[in-house]
Amino acid sequence: MPTYSQATRVRAADDRLACAVAAHATLRVPLEALGTLRDNPGLDSSPPLPPRFLRHADEQTVVGLAAVLRAMAAPHMARVDFADWGVLAAPRLLGRLSSAATLNKFVEVGVPAISPHVIPQHSLHAVSSAVSVALGLHGPNFGIGGGPESTAEGLLAALTFLRATQVPGMWLVLTEWDREPTPDGQGGSVTPAVCCASALALVPDKGGPTQLRIRATRVNRPAQGLVAWLADQESDGSSGRWTLPLSWGGHIEFAAGAPMQQRKAA
């Protein structure tokens, strides 16, 4: 079984809710480019997906799954067996574009207008379930948040749940629009829209220095969200620190260190 360096971690104030981030990848995709990604979300090295798997999926599911496939492609993740991994996804305001179109048709036409895919593909669990089904992950899968505070809810729930269960690892998938789109009522947006996702591979903490954690002190709200910050970090390869105050006290801190290196198992 592979082990990971401890360069990047999530940790609670009392050090009991800690985990390392073994890999992460971020993707930003304009709405008009989503069709291509929907047809082929992976890389050449990605595991094969069921045919037309994302045909009815929400935009955030498409980008979220693509981000997971890119994080999986990191060289040090090549030997990881993901079969028992869990997946937790925290989309923000999933399904707005499709809901506007569906509601239009529903009010005009009634029951026959409703696609049977609306509930399974646009409810809060849709992103985590799609990742679980696509990649054959048999650990727990569930959605978290769904509203404006999804990132904080996702980070907290992932920390908590990883400790509560015996899974070898868990994907945390954060998805959002960079600016919430205004629906055109036909499934598109009248405003420019870029769909974004970060996939974080979380593994149980093995001790060592902390670079990502929940701390008890107060901080100011960050200038940008975690997904946007990670996109910048990944593009220039730098290390740094991102913090988010929690409404109930303390803050979450994500401090990205040197790139993760896989070590041989003892």
């Binding site: 379930s129 769904g146 509560a164």
Partner: peptide
């Protein structure tokens, strides 16, 4: 304290108990 919504379709509220206990 913290507040979150969880969703796993018809198993949604089952996860709430695990998070609360933890």
């Amino acid at each position: 304290g913290p507040a979150v919504a969880v969703a796993a379709a018809c198993a949604s509220s089952g996860f709430s108990f695990s998070l609360a206990r933890e």
